[in-house]
Structure formats: C-alpha cells, structure tokens
C-alpha cells in the first residue's frame, strides 16, 4: 500500500509523463483525468499515501477534491501541481498541514524535486 501514488490531471501528456517518471522512481502510480474515476479507484483499491493534484479539472476544482479526499482518507498527503500562476493555498488547506512547499508550478522542467517530495511525505507517514 505504501508505494501507491495517485495522480489527477486532465492533461494526458502531463499525467503520462509524471506517471512514467514516478514509476521509474519505483512508485506504483494510479493516474486519472478527473476526480470521480480516482474516487472509484480508491474505493476499490483502498488508499494511497500521496496524491499529486492538478487544480483545474473537468468535474471539480482541485481544492474541493483535496477536501473530499482528506475527509475520506485523512492520512493522504497532497502535492499540488498547477498551471495557474496566481494560485494560492486556501486557509482550510493550510489548516490540513499543507504549505507553499507543496505547490509545484507547471511546467516542471525537472520532476526530481517533486518525486523527492513525494518520497519524503510517504516515508514521514510511514513512521509517525
């Protein structure tokens, strides 16, 4: 269960590229283009440690998706991967323990920092 990572992004190539990179890093990756299939997958599969969330999604905006997922799976950690330059964290998400370091601005020229952050979050959750 530890090595599952969830990616929600409506941009197929971003999704695929992230999935490829993280898989190369040893993760098992579940990538979805929107929130609904992701929730379906989670309900079937159980839970995963880390979620890389896009903000603009076809069925729901990223912040709401995080709130929903956090409610369902309080242990899940989030990394935000957005193309919006003016994005800032809402206060309630900050209250969940998120901060600006979780935000990754598209385009990511180098995915290594994101992968490293995911790894850190997963290991931190491993030994609370």
């Amino acid at each position: 269960m530890n090595d599952w990572i969830l990616i929600v992004d409506d941009e197929a190539m971003i999704r695929e590229n992230l999935k490829a990179y993280l898989e190369d890093e040893g993760w098992r990756v579940a990538a979805f283009e929107s929130v609904a299939p992701a929730l379906n997958w989670l309900r079937a599969e159980g839970s995963c440690r880390v979620c890389v969330m896009d903000m603009r999604l076809p069925d729901m905006d990223g912040n709401s998706a995080i709130r929903v997922l956090h409610q369902l799976y309080p242990a899940m950690e989030f990394l935000i991967h957005t193309g919006s330059s003016s994005y800032s964290l809402p206060e309630d998400l900050r209250a969940m323990g998120l901060d600006d370091s979780r935000i990754y601005q598209k385009p990511l020229g180098d995915m290594a920092p994101l992968a490293a952050a995911a790894r850190r979050l997963a290991t931190r959750e491993d030994c609370p």
Partner: peptide, 26 residues
C-alpha cells in the same frame, strides 16, 4: 494576457519539458 493564458501554455510546456526529461532518462 499572460495570466489568462499561462495555464494553457504551461500545460503543453509541461508536456514538452517533462516529456524531454522522461525521454532522456529512459
């Protein structure tokens, strides 16, 4: 103008950059 189209441009740029990175890596 940039703010309006940043998202639209950043996604393809992300695909290019991330794709290049993955290609080189793989």
């Amino acid at each position: 103008l940039a703010a309006g189209m940043a998202h639209e441009i950043n996604n393809p740029l992300g695909a290019i950059l991330q794709g290049s990175q993955n290609i080189l890596r793989r």
